[in-house]
Amino acid sequence: MVKSTSKDAQALFQSLRSAYAATPTNLKIIDLYVVFSIFTALIQVVYMAIVGSFPFNSFLSGVLSCIGTAVLAVCLRIQVNKENKEFKDLPPERAFADFVLCNLVLHLVIMNFLG
């Protein structure tokens, strides 16, 4: 049983990986960016858990900066993905411009809040 489950899991991962390998490179980049942001946020949360949340606004802005940019990246991914028929008419360049603009606005607020 045990073997089969691990085998199944291996098989599952295999299929996942092969399926993911088919993903276009630009989407992979965005995925990587999302993972990078989430990990950065996680490290800050761990830091907070260890030493306390004293400059609370700094902590918040740091974490929210990461989460916010990750969310924006996910949005970008949705819009850029060709599978999504919903955004078929939207050129990816336009989506990228939105992403840049939103990031700039987000970080202006973050910097203001950073203290």
Binding site: K28, L32, V35, F36, T40, I43, Q44, Y47
Partner: peptide, 21 residues
Amino acid sequence: FLGLTLLPLVGFLIGLLRIGV
């Protein structure tokens, strides 16, 4: 921890190379 927060960035860059950007 400052160093640690830089690690994902490094990972991101390595990932980019792996993907073949």
